[in-house]
Design a protein around this nucleic acid. Structure first.
Length: 555
RNA sequence: GCCCCGCUAGCUCAGUGGAUAGAGCAUCUGUCUUCUAAACAGAGGGUCUGAGGUUCGAAUCCUCAGCGGGGCACCA
């Protein structure tokens, strides 16, 4: 069985189109899920799309296609309706699918789209100067779910956190710790949180003699120490959401190794650098590059080395690109950034290009901001909600579902009280409850029957509410593929909801009429329904796992 | 001023150029002696921000306008 019915139908459709005498390129026939139940499961507007090519009326073309098409394994039957061809999955194919899904278990829906492609996803990389807040939670859950989906589809994925260690913010952070160590208020623009005092106290213990050092010697040590403490915190916070990074890459290693100098030297030789006002600038103007009509190159110059000799974060990123594409040989790098960094995208793309890398291999996923109802988050103004607090209040599963339910393009206006309320009625429980019910019914079956037939005869699954569960299972590989290709994990929670709905209806049918229960007097029928339960339970669990949500067996 | 994102039911949001625009929450009406009611069945609720355009066909693509969010550093 091919894992993906949609693809099977698409191929059959293409063959049918060829059989009608279309030689050249076939337009996109837009085979997709039918929106109305009367139209079956999949539908294409092929008749309308081919009307011009074939110089025939759309209904006539659709009729000929429906006649000509042969779907392998009789998976679906075609029917013309106006200019459309509708496909309905056959009962017998759905019945067989149930057995196959139950056997495939957690692997059902997995695909080898990546062929082992080595890629890195870098996400959640905030300045290590304070705890994560609810805005960061979005990037962390999004990035991690992208990783999970990519892993499930045959990619070799590395999760990376880029530790911005050498910038103005972290220096202010170090200075703030230094001030607290000496019982002073943090300097202007410094960090005022209580945690800074805590870190200063710990440093007093862990770094003997630090108090007697002058600031220019103490600050770098304190900064490094404080950042490591913060990173421990961040590591613990994301772990609560089921996220574990493979590597924490320190910006400082760019300058402790030859990465930074190599990048700058390469750009200098290629003519991308020039000096002005005592600083070193990156600019494209020396040889204008237009690639495939798309403007890859930015117009404005950007500072690489400041007049005071310090490299900018942009300079670090140049070395970082070499680390990833060249030294560590990632074929693709996915960056998950908040939308306030969107202006940085063209610069990074042109930098990648200038360094000799394919800018297409640098994929930037932008997600919109998480703002508080009261306004933009600001520690200083007291408008700030820590990610840990949110997890404390609503639980990790609800947090993950809450974020991943939304497309990255929508701005989240956050209201903690509302989030807590919604946490209690979060749609995640609807899906988890479906899983728990399925788990429980299997327990019931074991209690009732010492033995059941080893093989399930799934042709006994003939009730509409049973076949509708199987129908949802059939769609799962489509969802996985779409989520992986478009790097859009938010498709998964919506699928989870649909599958859970089919499961609840199926289960509830047994509450309404006992003959429709899973565990009934007929062992063969019980066995067949158990097979369906297993198939659905595995798929629910797999889908929940891709968004990092647990699948409890009891609730 | 320029750039990016959004505007869809009372609220929060889905919706690869296709047929009659969907879900959750909220509101209202039914269903537990039951394999788990954290469930199920049903009802009401829409000028898809507005105006043009492209197309056989537009919530979806293009242009303009409005409103909201975010950018435009020798900050990251």
């Amino acid at each position: 069985m091919s894992g993906n019915v949609r693809e099977t139908i698409a191929n059959a459709l293409e063959a049918a189109v060829r059989s009608l005498g279309v030689d050249g390129e076939i337009p996109d026939l837009e085979l997709g899920r039918a929106k109305v139940a009367d139209h079956g499961d999949y539908a294409t507007s092929a008749g309308l799309k081919l009307a011009r090519t074939l110089r025939q009326a759309p209904p006539a073309i659709a009729a000929r296609l429906a006649e000509a098409i042969v779907v392998p394994e009789d998976a679906a039957r075609a029917e013309a309706a106006g200019g459309y061809v509708n496909f309905r999955l056959t009962d017998s194919w759905l019945q067989r699918l149930v057995g196959q899904v139950a056997a495939a278990g957690a692997r059902y829906g997995a695909a080898d789209l990546g062929h082992g492609e080595r890629l890195q996803v870098e996400f959640g990389s905030i300045n290590p100067t304070g705890p994560l807040h609810i805005g960061h939670g979005r990037g962390v859950t999004l990035g991690d779910s992208i990783c999970r989906v990519l892993e499930f589809t045959g990619h070799d994925v590395q999760r990376e956190y880029y530790v911005n260690s050498d910038n103005t913010q972290t220096r202010r952070f170090g200075a703030s710790v230094y001030a607290r160590l000496h019982g002073q208020e943090p300097p202007e623009g410094g960090y005022v949180g209580e945690y800074v005092k805590d870190i200063a106290d710990m440093a007093r213990q862990d770094l003997p003699g630090i108090e007697s050092l002058p600031e220019d010697q103490a600050e770098p040590k304190l900064r490094r120490y404080a950042m490591e403490k913060i990173i421990d915190q961040i590591r613990a916070s994301v772990a609560r959401l089921g996220v574990e990074y493979d590597e924490w890459f320190w910006e400082s290693t760019v300058w402790e190794s030859d990465l930074g100098p190599t990048a700058i030297e390469r750009l200098r030789e290629a003519g991308y650098l020039r000096e002005r006002d005592g600083a070193l600038w990156f600019g494209p103007a020396l040889q204008e590059k237009e690639e495939a009509g798309e403007k890859v190159v930015e117009e404005e110059d950007r500072v690489v080395i400041r007049a005071n000799g310090q490299p900018t974060y942009f300079a670090s990123d140049l070395g970082y690109l070499i680390s990833r594409f060249e030294r560590r040989e990632f074929n693709r790098v996915v960056e998950v950034w908040a939308a306030d960094h969107h202006g940085y995208v063209p610069r990074m793309k042109s930098a990648a290009s200038a360094l000799g890398f394919d800018p297409e291999k640098l994929v930037v996923i932008l997600h919109q901001m998480v703002n508080l109802k009261e306004g933009k988050m600001s520690k200083r103004a007291g408008r700030y909600v820590a990610l840990d607090e949110l997890i404390d209040r609503v639980g990790a599963d609800a947090v993950r579902f809450f974020y991943l339910l939304r497309s990255p393009d929508t701005t989240i206006e956050f209201d903690l009280e509302l989030a807590v309320t919604q946490g209690n009625e979060n749609p995640v429980y609807y899906a988890q409850y479906a899983h728990a019910r399925l788990s429980n019914v299997e327990v019931t079956a074991r209690e009732r029957y010492a033995t059941l037939p080893g093989e399930a005869d799934t042709s006994l699954l003939v009730q509409p509410h049973e076949l509708d569960v199987a129908r949802q299972l059939a769609f799962w590989p489509d969802v996985v593929e779409d989520a992986a290709r478009m790097l859009e994990p938010h498709r998964i929670p919506y699928y989870v909801h649909d599958l859970a709905t089919a499961v609840h209806r199926f289960y509830h049918a047994g509450n309404a009429e006992s003959q429709y229960r899973v565990v009934v007097d007929d062992p063969a029928l019980t066995r067949a329904r158990l097979e369906l339960c297993r198939a659905a339970r595995h798929t629910l669990k797999t889908a929940l796992d891709l968004i990092g949500v647990s699948a409890p067996e009891r609730m």
